[in-house]
Design a protein around this nucleic acid. Structure first.
Lengths: 337, 337
DNA sequence: TTGAAAGCGGTACCAG
DNA sequence: CTGGTACCGCTTTCAA
C-alpha cells in the first residue's frame, strides 16, 4: 500500500540505510558486490526515493516556481511550455502559479512559493513586489525576473529589447505612408510596456512625428480577454470618433489585441491595411493565419524559455555572476500594414 | 540568511515547538495569552512554515501533478489556467509536466511525480500507462484521468460527450446541404479521438450517409504545431486531388487545425463555406475572430478545470465514491459552414 | 568500505 | 493547556 522507503531497501539488501544512500548518490566508494545487492533490492521493491525527504535533509531542491499572470495568452503559455520542456531535461520540476494580474494575489502566491520550499523563483512581469523579492534573497532563494527589468541588484532579468523594436516599427510604418501612429495597449504598468511606451515616444521623435497623448489608447480591461476586449474597445472607439480624427496606424501591445481590433474595423466597414494599418506583438502562431495576415513582432518564446533555464542552472551554481539577458525582437511584415 | 524555523519561533515565544504547531494548526486548545505571544513571535520573525517538512511528517500533501502533452495549444493551456486558478483558491499548488505526446516520456514524468511525493495526479489524454497508474493506486496516490475515459476501476475520469456532438455536427452539416463529410484529425490514439471517430461513423449511418475510409485524413505530425501542419497537409491534399474527389465538408479535430486548413483552402482559391464547409473543435477564443468566423464545438475549458478541482477535493476526502463526469459540448454555428 | 547516529523542520501522541 | 519526545525518509559526518 505505502511507498517503499530506503529502510526497506536496506533491510532487503542486508545493509544500512547510509550504504543505500551512498550507492544511489555515489557519495562514497561501495564495493561492487554490495552495490549489486542494493541495486537488486531497489529493483525488487520498486523503490523510488522520496524527493521531499531528500530536499528537507540536503537543502537542495530541484523545483522551480514559475509565477506568471496566467496561461490564457499564448505568449506565456508558449514560454512556459518551452521552459517546462527544458526543465524536464535538466531534471527540474516546475510549479506554476498564476497571479491574474493582481498584486495582492502575486504576493500571496510568492508566500506560497516560500512555504513550498521552492528552490528557484521566476517572476514574469509583475510589479510592486520588491519587498517579497528581497525576502527571497535574504533566505537564500534565488529569483529571476522575466520579461521585465529589475531594479534590485543581485536579481538578474531576461527581457526583450523594447527600444530598438519600437523604432523599427515606427519607421516601417512611416515608410508605408502612415502619418499618425496610435498606441493601443493594456495598462502601462509592467516594465516591458513602460519601455515600449518610452520607445514609442522616442521613435516618433526620431522619425519627425509628433507625440500626441490622444493617440494613446489604454483601457484597464485590456489585460484580460485580449481578443474580446480589444474588439470591444475598438468598436467603441470607432463608433464615437470619425476616422479622420483617429490614427491611421496602430501598434497593439499583443497579437490578440490586434486581431480583436481588426475584427472591429472589419465589422465597421474599414479595410486593412488601406484604411488602418495594424501591428501586433508576439508573433503568436495564429497571427500568420488570420485575414489579413498580421504584421507583428517576433518574440522568440522558445528561446526565452531556454535561456531562462540556462539562467536557473547558472544561478544554482555560482549564485553570483549571472548576467542579464536582452533578447532581440524583429518585425515580421505581413499584410496588415 | 536562512528561513526561520518553528524552533526559533518557539524560543522567541518562550514555548515549545509543539505549542507553536498547535496554535498554527488549531490542533489543541491553547490559552489566548500564549496564542497571542506565539502570533507575535511569528510576525516578528516573519515565520512561514515549511510545507516540505510538514508533508513529510503528516503524509498530507497539497500539491497536484498535472500531466499533459504540453501547453502549446489553447485547449490545454486554458484548462490548466482555470485549474491553477481554482487550485489557488483551495490552497493547492500545481506542478505541471509535459510529455510532448511521447509515451516513454510520459512514463518518466510519472515516475518523477512519484519521486516528488505528489498528492494527487491528473493525467490528460495519454495512453498505454495502465501499469504506472496502478502503481500510483497501490501507493495510495489518487489518479484522475482527464479528457479521456478510463478502463481501470477506481480511477475516475472527466471528459466530453463525444458521441452526441458528432451526431449534432453531421446532421447540421447535412442540413446545410453538404454531402460528403471528411474527418481531418491527428492520430486516432487517444480515447477522446477514438470516441469522436466512432461517433462520426455512427452519425453518418444515422443520417443515411455512407462511411468512406477515403474521407478520413490523418497524419502523424498533426498533433504538433496544429496550425502549420494542418495548413501543410491541406495544401498537399488540395494539390494532389481534384475538388470533386474530396469531401465538401470537413470536421477538424481542433480549431487550430481548422484554421490552418482554411488558410490552405483560401490560398488555393477556394471559398468557405461555398466550396468547403469547415467545423473545428474547442471553440478557442480565436475561432470567433478569424475570417470567416469558424463554426466549432464549444468545449468549456473553464468548466473542465473547475470540475477537475472538485474531483480532486472529493478524492482527497472520500477516496472512494468519485463519480465520472461527462461534460456536454455544443455546436457553435458561425460562418465557416 | 560500511555501520551507527545525528539531524532537516515539522506533527502527533502522551504526560502532567 | 502545555511540555517532552518519537519519528517522517533521507543525507551526512564520524568511527570502526
Amino acid at each position: 500500500m505505502k511507498r517503499t522507503t530506503i529502510t526497506q531497501v536496506a533491510k532487503e539488501a542486508g545493509v544500512t540505510i547510509g550504504t543505500v544512500s551512498h550507492v544511489i548518490n555515489g557519495t562514497a566508494p561501495i564495493s561492487a558486490e554490495t552495490t549489486e545487492r542494493v541495486r537488486r533490492a531497489i529493483k525488487a521493491l520498486n523503490y523510488i526515493p522520496n524527493a521531499t525527504a531528500k530536499s528537507l535533509r540536503s537543502k537542495k531542491n530541484y523545483t522551480i516556481g514559475l509565477m506568471l499572470p496566467n496561461l490564457n495568452n499564448s505568449f506565456h503559455s508558449k514560454v512556459a511550455s518551452a521552459f517546462i520542456d527544458k526543465a524536464y531535461i535538466e531534471g527540474y520540476s516546475v510549479q506554476i502559479h498564476g497571479y491574474e494580474y493582481s498584486l495582492e494575489r502575486e504576493r500571496r502566491e510568492l508566500e506560497r512559493l516560500e512555504r513550498n520550499n521552492i528552490g528557484t523563483v521566476i517572476i514574469f512581469n509583475g510589479y510592486g513586489d520588491e519587498r517579497e523579492i528581497k525576502n527571497f534573497l535574504q533566505k537564500g532563494i534565488p529569483v529571476i525576473l522575466a520579461d521585465r527589468s529589475s531594479t534590485i541588484a543581485q536579481v538578474p532579468h531576461i527581457k526583450f529589447d523594447n527600444h530598438k523594436i519600437m523604432l523599427d516599427i515606427v519607421s516601417a510604418l512611416q515608410k508605408k505612408g502612415y502619418q499618425r501612429i496610435g498606441f493601443f495597449s493594456e495598462p502601462i504598468q509592467l516594465t516591458n510596456l513602460k519601455e515600449r511606451f518610452q520607445g514609442y515616444q522616442e521613435a516618433l521623435k526620431k522619425c519627425g512625428l509628433s507625440f500626441n497623448p490622444k493617440d494613446v489608447f489604454v483601457r484597464d480591461d485590456l489585460c484580460l480577454d485580449n481578443l474580446k476586449n480589444g474588439y470591444r474597445y475598438m468598436r467603441d472607439i470607432l463608433s464615437i470618433n470619425e476616422k479622420k480624427t483617429l490614427p491611421d496606424a496602430w501598434i497593439a501591445s499583443s497579437d490578440l489585441l490586434a486581431i480583436g481590433m481588426m475584427r472591429a474595423m472589419h465589422e465597421c466597414g474599414y479595410q486593412i491595411p488601406a484604411d488602418f494599418g495594424v501591428v501586433g506583438f508576439d508573433n503568436t502562431e495564429i497571427s500568420g493565419y488570420v485575414n489579413p495576415r498580421l504584421t507583428t513582432v517576433e518574440q522568440n518564446q522558445i528561446l526565452l524559455g531556454e535561456k531562462l533555464m540556462e539562467m536557473v542552472k547558472q544561478i544554482n551554481c555560482d549564485k553570483k555572476s549571472v548576467e542579464n539577458i536582452s533578447l532581440e525582437q524583429s518585425l515580421v511584415i505581413r499584410e496588415s500594414c
